[in-house]
């Protein structure tokens, strides 16, 4: 999994590519979230448009980011979910926890 980060105004955008399956990727994701908190960019959009696969470890990774950001006064919102990526979120009902948007622009505007 690759993560590209950029900032638009006060919003930090994490563009993910590949598979979200926890493991070593979790450390890289945690690092991005920690950096966002340190730099006071606690409103984060995770762009999932280039993610091929997500399992329960990937879900755990997103939940961990969400709780850290919310406890720092921010949020983690999701953009560009494909049907395949939406499935584990729906089954676990975590789709009610994450705000989801059809584009990164809409997700950025929501803050």
């Amino acid at each position: 999994m690759e993560i590209k980060t950029r900032t638009e105004g006060a919003v930090r955008i994490l563009e993910m590519t590949g598979d979200l399956m926890g493991g070593a990727e979790l450390d890289r994701f945690r690092q991005c979230i920690d950096e966002a908190i340190e730099e006071e960019k606690v409103n984060v959009v995770v762009d999932l448009g280039k993610v091929n696969w997500m399992n329960s470890s990937g879900l755990g990774m997103l939940i961990s980011g969400l709780t850290s950001l919310r406890s720092s006064g921010g949020d983690l919102r999701l953009a560009n979910l494909t049907e395949r990526i939406r499935r584990p979120l729906q089954i676990t009902k975590l789709d009610s926890v994450f705000q989801q948007f059809t584009s990164v622009a809409d997700a950025v505007k929501s803050y």
């Binding site: 329960s56 470890s57 879900l59 584990p88």
Partner: peptide
């Protein structure tokens, strides 16, 4: 309970 507390992990077998 899980959603209220937003725990990390333990979802694999539920899935």
């Amino acid at each position: 309970e899980y959603l209220a507390e937003l725990k990390v992990g333990g979802l694999g077998i539920y899935l």
